[in-house]
Amino acid sequence: MRTQIVLLPGLLCDDAVWVDQRGPLSAIGECFVPDYGMRDSLGAMADHVLESVEADRLLVAGHSMGGRVALEIFRRAPDRVAGLALLDTGYTERPAGDVGESERAQRMKLLDLARTQGMRAMGNQWAPGMVHPDRLDDKVYQAILDMIERSTADKFAAQIRALLDRPDATELLDEINCPTTLVCGRDDRWSPLARHEEMHARIRGSQLRVIEHSGHMCTMERPEEVTTVLLEWARWAAGGEAAQ
């Protein structure tokens, strides 16, 4: 039975997020990194992925928004998902009331900046929270800005709509029955470790791996450590033993 590894990027991200993991993982299965295009819901992104891959068995890894897409893939096709890796992500819907409106306003402010001053200018405002503070002057941070600049304000708007309208996946976590690894940068300020601990408690048999000295962009900040974790997960999901 053919196995394919799906690597899902997050908001305004592309395959640069997975560049260090893709080669090693390809020894286990063919890797596919989707482009969400102008799709403006997590469900539509999930449907696009499922239509784009032919394998019967999928190992699905998602980073940030991509983790939410991974959950929507499982919601739609649990029998095809042989393993899940959820990195620096979340599972709840946008809060009601003032908190949810504040999130919407902040995202719209960034979108306005992208439209009026360009994607890199927006990235300079947004991206500092993505990484460990020690990385603000290094090549990883510049690579993140370059990745943001490769996208467009229209794609940003579509993905913002997807995130503002994100479905709640709390009950879905209880249904996950495949090998699942949760990964979080110790210093992730956007998708904190506590959130991953909540997910770990709900997903039966899951594993939680913490990446030290890393913020939200762990695949790029600490590529070797994340690659090791994902190789362990992929071998486990492909039929090996879980790492202890």
Rank of each mutant, 00 (worst) to 15 (best):
I5Y: 06
L7N: 01
L8V: 06
G10C: 04
L11R: 03
L12G: 03
C13D: 10
D15P: 02
D15V: 01
D15G: 02
D15E: 12
A16W: 14
V19G: 13
D20E: 14
Q21E: 09
R22N: 11
L25C: 08
A27E: 08
E30L: 01
V33R: 03
Y36D: 08
G37L: 10
M38A: 09
M38G: 09
M38Y: 11
G43N: 09
A46W: 01
H48N: 02
V53K: 01
D56G: 06
R57H: 11
R57M: 07
L59W: 06
L59K: 05
V60M: 08
A61L: 02
H63E: 05
S64R: 07
G66C: 06
V69L: 01
A70S: 15
L71Q: 15
I73W: 01
R76T: 00
P78R: 05
D79R: 08
V81W: 15
A82H: 13
L84D: 02
T89P: 00
E93H: 15
R94P: 06
P95A: 13
A96Y: 10
G97I: 06
D98K: 04
V99H: 12
A105I: 09
Q106I: 00
M108E: 14
A114S: 07
T116S: 02
T116A: 08
R120M: 03
M122P: 03
G123Q: 10
N124S: 01
V131P: 11
L136A: 08
K139E: 15
Y141N: 07
Q142P: 11
A143F: 11
I144T: 00
D146A: 14
T152R: 00
T152S: 14
T152Y: 00
D154K: 07
K155N: 09
F156D: 00
A157P: 06
A157E: 09
A158H: 13
Q159D: 05
Q159G: 07
I160R: 04
I160M: 09
A162F: 07
L164N: 04
R166S: 04
E171R: 15
E171M: 11
L172T: 15
L173T: 03
N177R: 15
T181A: 13
G185L: 00
G185R: 00
D188W: 00
P192T: 14
P192S: 09
A194H: 12
R195A: 13
H196N: 11
H196S: 04
M199N: 05
M199H: 04
A201I: 11
R202L: 05
R202V: 10
R202K: 15
R202M: 10
R209Y: 03
V210S: 05
V210R: 03
S214R: 03
G215P: 03
C218K: 09
M220C: 05
E221R: 06
E224P: 06
E225M: 12
V226W: 00
T228R: 13
L231K: 15
W236M: 12
A237Y: 03
A238C: 06
A238G: 15
A238K: 04
G240T: 08
E241G: 07
Q244M: 06
